[in-house]
Nucleic acid binder design. Structure first.
Length: 1113
RNA sequence: GCGCGGGUGGCUUAGUCGGUUAGAGCACCCGGCUGAUAACCGGGAGGUCGCAGGUUCAAGUCCUGCCUCGCGCACCA
């Protein structure tokens, strides 16, 4: 070697030709990454990479805004990896990919957080504290973890602009939301309604269906069968409910008019098996659906009468709680009503109806003219006057009281039958919606609310959804499509404080005005002031939040004062506006949004299907009548190593820094991408990250180090030297062909969203093909100190392979490959061109300037030679076969064989030297007389045989397989005279396999060549000669001495003095002794003959009965 | 309850049109190789392919039912 190792190390700092690689040091992945981050920061690498493509066609990415009031976890890293990798990939392809960051800052999660901190657990408490101060606290709280998010984002190398992000609380952002709402208002999509909605008394607000979907939990609760006593007859109608708290509100019973009901008389007292409260006396009569008698009744009864439900309609019954609901002017209260939605799947076939606490109940009540009266207050407590034992109590705590009231001897109304009004209680388990923030059960509750008429645009939603490229496709067709087909009007108002205020003002007589901008607000305020209505000032920068906006009183066209509807918006509405509100559209002039709509790519967790994926589409459909995004990657859930969902409450959230600080972000990202398809749930296994680091990144680094160290030693410069690929050795042409094949497949997998497959294959290529074969086989080529064409070939090849690999890896794991790429080429990898693609075929490539850009961005891959690839595969299999043969024969690896025979197969002449070395044989011979080492086996081809042999196929197959004389049978087959069990066997019915004859040290490998399977055998000569024994001994001695050198931590160049004693050894040839000296860099090397006594400090080892002792000095 | 996606050695996973020996990696054991790395190579042990039926000459693969996990929908009295 022409330079000492230490000299190379010292060269790192010195200036030199940009393209001439430096040597590589030991790998410290974490330091490599953090140093590079610093360098990126200084170079402004992200902005530069975007700017670099400013002439390219735009590829529009939209960031789904996270909330920064929670700590980021590993699942956020996953989503950000997939966002980042697509953006980086598209950038390398030549697209101009801007990435604006965003923050979601409004809404319930923020409020709850602040409420907990300030101990303001009710709306009253908040108002007492002051809405102003409360909202300020929210505004501050939003940024609690912003630094943590920023650090995580930077450390994982998610390139997104966090310096000018969109923020949903910004006035500009809110103003755009107002504008959007006004578009809906003007189109008649926005309306005020009174509906039964899932309502949380703790947070004091109702929820939209997508929020409710977040909180279903299975609960077991008491359900009750209640007797409703008819007024004109001594009989009761049985009804069932799972929500006893709604019973005081009962004002009607619904029956199916066509359902058959039965009137039954209790025949005898209930048996011992009766559990729980309630009951009935002998002789008492109850009415219920005939089909449900078995399920419901626990007494023996006589059926007295059967009739359809219509016969019951109009009958009146006694209220359960006499004073709970005032009758008002209702004539239908406490009567039986007909409803076609009543079923007999459970319950009694009679539905207890409490107008205000069920959607069907409410609609029926409105239709039938039942009194619409709340027995429950907004805080979830029974209203005063409901019942002395219930008034002022939280309804969910009253199940037991209500049950005992009903089952009391006189019933809850004090007038019931002796046995009470309760027939039976039964625990019932079902999924029930709970508040996604506080975990309390939601109450279905009739209230005023604002809605977006999504049902009016259902068809458009479905049409737009059809045009979205979903990954995986079944999310779009299935889950999301199903959601859209069942679309409900979007309840967008919240009885809350911290959010985008609903910009609608309303007068006492119901006239309404929707304000769509600050300017409009100012104009309206001015108008009101002019009419004498007092108003606070409304400057250009008026804060578009509560309570400021609540302060404005506007003027209706009729001259009445209008007050703002006291709601804020569902915070999902905010993020649904992101595609335009991020640009302050349309107040910015509209260009930015028009140029970036619809969005090319979004990516979030699958849990956003009902969330962001939906609200984006909902808003763009109602506001623009257009689709929102063209491609949507929906990511699977992240589970912990046990397969449990990661959640704060479970405490099983993985901290990304555990891995950033150990294996680095490269390995973390690569692991996440290779762990499975992006849309499948991922079990995050810390061990897997480590494995990825050890396999993928250490290997890649060592390949690079191998190249860079010698390139630096030799002053290799890829730009000033050339090496025609056509003239390079097979090994080089092989790895380059593999590179081309792998790169093309990689790209195709990317296009198909199969990132996991792409990366698994690439990793396999780097580890197996590049490191374990190409580099291993090339090591000696670079040891050669003299300049040579062969060495140059190898260096160019390594250079090309590494450069392309860097570019392929870069979008997924951007650190190490940037360091490598820079050292190899002087250029950052993130401004390099994607190595795969065809000019002009990239989507968006319409403008001329773009075509040129695309063409430039399309690098050339080396030529593919598939025949060479398959030949090399065979060579590698033969090398492995050789090792197997030796182990079977008990011949140690370092003892050479005189010769090896290759039997059959393609010409491997160019690889004979390589094989001789791998197999440790003196020479490789090609055996053309196949029968010398091989015999034939026949195996049945079921596909061909089955149609002919039918049921006998197994017998025929066995006969073929087990024939005593396969050669003879083959001859018959070929002659057309082979018949087994009456079936004529043709050549296509069998597969002819050649395997090694027994009695040889041999093995046979199989492989596919041009759709045919061929068998190639390898035979090794196991005979020993004195020359072979001597050579083998020299090899073993050398290996031991080298190990000793390594143990002594000697410099590679250092020379040693070597003494060797042999006992019971073969005679050593002088040439072999010289070889030992040369290989071990022994200046002095003494071989003591057999039986000399070794020095006292000599180490010894045994090999095949020989004892070798040696000293290294 | 309905729908979607899973269930393959201890763990992670591949498995094409159904074709007879279910393939890798990690971990484990034995051996080899190495101035090549946490590497590499060979071998071994480890599998009722969730269960039960069915179709078929042949089922991990197709059909039916069930169990189980995850997700979603509907949950309403």
């Amino acid at each position: 070697m022409n330079k000492l190792w230490s000299e190379v190390q010292n060269e790192f700092a010195g200036g030199r030709n940009m393209a001439q690689p430096n040597g590589a040091g030991e790998l410290n992945a974490v330091k490599l990454e953090t140093d590079l981050l610093e360098q990126w920061k200084q170079e402004n690498a992200f902005a530069s990479s975007v700017q670099h493509r400013s002439n390219g066609a735009p590829f529009i990415f939209l960031e789904g805004p996270p909330t920064a009031n929670g700590k980021p976890g590993i699942h956020h890293v996953v989503a950000r990896t997939y966002k980042d990798l697509v953006c980086r990939w598209k950038t390398m392809e030549g697209f101009h990919v801007e990435r604006k960051g965003g923050w979601d800052t409004h809404g319930l999660p923020v409020e709850i957080e602040v409420q907990k901190r300030l101990d303001l657990m009710s709306n009253e408490a908040i108002e007492q504290f002051g809405m102003d101060a409360f909202n300020q606290a929210c505004r501050d709280s939003v940024w609690t973890y912003e630094a943590a998010w920023r650090e995580m984002t930077e450390r994982m190398a998610y390139w997104v602009d966090l310096d000018e992000p969109y923020v949903t609380l910004d006035n500009n952002y809110v103003e755009s939301c107002w504008w959007a709402l006004k578009q809906m208002f003007d189109k008649g999509f926005l309306y005020r309604g009174h509906k039964v909605l899932p309502y949380c008394p703790q947070t004091g607000t109702s929820y939209s269906s997508h929020e409710v979907a977040l909180g279903y939990k299975e609960v077991e609760e008491p359900s009750v069968y209640v007797k409703f006593k008819l007024t004109d007859e001594d009989a009761s109608i049985l009804a069932w409910t799972t929500t006893p708290w709604t019973l005081p509100g009962n004002v009607g019973l619904a029956v199916g008019p066509d359902i058959t009901y039965a009137r039954c008389r209790i025949k005898e007292a209930a048996g011992e098996g009766w559990i729980g409260a309630g009951g009935a006396n002998v002789g008492e009569e109850v009415i219920l659906a005939k089909d449900l008698m078995k399920e419901v009744l626990r007494h023996h009864v006589d059926i007295i009468e059967e009739f359809p439900g219509s016969h019951l309609v109009g009958r009146s019954y006694e209220p359960l709680f006499t004073d709970a609901v005032p009758r008002g002017d209702s004539s239908t209260a406490w009567t039986v009503l007909a409803a076609d939605w009543v079923t007999t799947t459970d319950g009694t076939g009679v539905v207890h109806t409490a107008v205000m606490y069920g959607e069907d109940d409410y609609n029926l009540g409105m239709e039938a003219g039942l009194p619409a009266y709340h027995t429950v207050e907004m805080n979830g407590q029974f209203r005063a006057g409901t019942h002395p034992e219930l008034d002022g109590k939280y309804v969910k705590d009253c199940d037991a009281s209500i049950i005992s009231l009903l089952s009391a001897p006189n019933g809850s109304n004090g007038a019931g039958p002796e046995s009470g009004l309760l027939y039976r209680e039964k625990n019932y388990s079902h999924d029930y919606p709970h508040c996604w923030r506080t975990d309390h059960p939601l109450l279905y509750y009739a209230m005023d609310s604002w809605f977006v008429r999504m049902t009016a645009v259902k068809e458009r939603l479905l049409e737009f959804n059809d045009q979205v490229e979903w990954a995986p496709d079944w999310v779009g067709e299935g889950r999301f499509g199903e959601w859209l087909r069942n679309v409900k009007d979007w309840a967008i108002s919240r009885e809350r404080y911290w959010g985008t205020p609903l910009p609608v003002w309303r007068s006492a007589n119901g006239q309404m005005k929707c304000v769509g901008s600050i300017a409009e607000l100012q104009a309206e305020v001015a108008k009101a002031v002019a009419a004498g209505i007092e108003n606070p000032p409304c400057p250009d920068d008026v804060d578009l939040h509560r309570p400021i906006v609540d302060g404005f009183t506007l003027l209706s066209d009729e001259g009445e004062p209008m007050h703002r509807e006291p709601f804020v918006m569902d915070c999902w509405f905010d993020s649904g506006c992101a595609s335009f509100a991020q640009w302050h559209h349309p107040f910015d002039g509209g260009e930015r949004f028009n140029a970036s709509s619809p969005v090319d790519y979004i990516c979030e967790g699958v849990d956003q299907t009902r969330g962001w994926f939906y609200t984006l589409l909902a808003v763009s459909t109602t506001v623009f009548d257009s689709m929102a995004y063209k491609r949507c990657l929906s990511l699977g859930l992240i589970l912990d190593a046990e397969g449990k969902k990661m959640s704060k409450s479970r405490g099983n959230i993985v901290d990304p820094w555990d891995h950033f600080n150990r294996e680095g972000a490269d390995a973390t990202r690569w692991y996440m991408v290779t762990a499975g398809a992006p849309w499948n749930p991922m079990k995050f296994d810390a061990n897997g990250v480590r494995e990825t680091y050890a396999k993928m990144f250490l290997t890649m680094w060592n390949v690079y180090k191998f190249h860079a160290d010698y390139a630096a030693l030799d002053g290799f410069d890829p730009e000033t030297t050339t090496s025609d690929i056509a003239t390079r050795p097979e090994l080089d042409r092989w790895i380059l062909s593999r590179l081309a094949t792998v790169a093309k497949n990689y790209h195709e997998s990317f296009v198909d969203w199969q990132f996991h497959k792409a990366c698994r294959d690439l990793e396999d290529f780097i580890v197996n093909d590049v490191s374990n074969w190409y580099v291993r086989r090339s090591r000696r080529r670079l040891w050669d100190e003299a300049e040579s064409g062969d060495k140059l070939s190898c260096q160019h090849t390594l250079h090309e392979v590494l450069m392309t690999v860097c570019r392929l890896v870069a979008p997924v794991s951007p650190f190490m490959v940037d360091v490598i790429h820079r050292n190899l080429t002087g250029r950052p990898v993130h401004e390099a061109n994607w190595p795969v693609g065809v000019p002009g075929t990239l989507e968006g490539a319409t403008a001329d300037s773009w075509d040129q850009e695309a063409a430039k961005a399309t690098a050339q891959l080396p030529p593919q030679d598939l025949a060479l690839e398959s030949t090399m595969e065979l060579v590698r299999e033969l090398a492995e076969a050789g090792r197997r043969i030796r182990i079977d024969a008990g011949r140690r690896q370092r003892l050479p064989c005189a010769q090896g025979w290759i039997v059959a197969g393609p010409d491997l002449l160019p690889f004979h030297d390589l094989l001789a070395e791998e197999l440790n044989v003196e020479s490789i011979l090609v055996e053309t007389d196949l029968d010398r080492f091989q015999r034939i086996e026949l195996s049945p081809n079921f596909r061909a045989l089955a149609p002919k042999a039918r049921a006998q196929v197994n017998d025929v197959a066995n006969a073929i397989k087990n024939t005593e004389d396969p050669e003879g049978m083959l001859a018959q087959i070929q002659a057309g005279t082979a018949e087994v069990l009456g079936v004529l066997i043709e050549e296509s019915d069998v597969e002819i396999k050649r395997v090694e004859r027994s009695g040889f040290a041999a093995d046979t490998v199989e492989m596919e060549v041009n759709e045919n399977t061929i068998q190639v055998s390898l035979v090794l000569d196991m005979n020993d000669t004195p020359a072979l024994l001597s050579k083998g001994m020299a090899r073993d001695i050398t290996r031991r001495v080298q190990a000793k050198r390594k143990a002594l931590d000697l410099e590679i160049e250092a020379t040693i003095d070597l003494e060797i004693w042999l006992a019971n050894a073969p005679e050593m040839m002088a040439a072999d002794e010289d070889w030992v000296a040369h290989e071990t860099r022994a200046a002095g090397c003494v071989f003591h003959p057999n039986d000399a006594t070794p020095a006292g400090d000599a180490e010894s080892f045994d090999v095949d009965g020989t004892t070798v002792s040696f000293t290294v000095k």
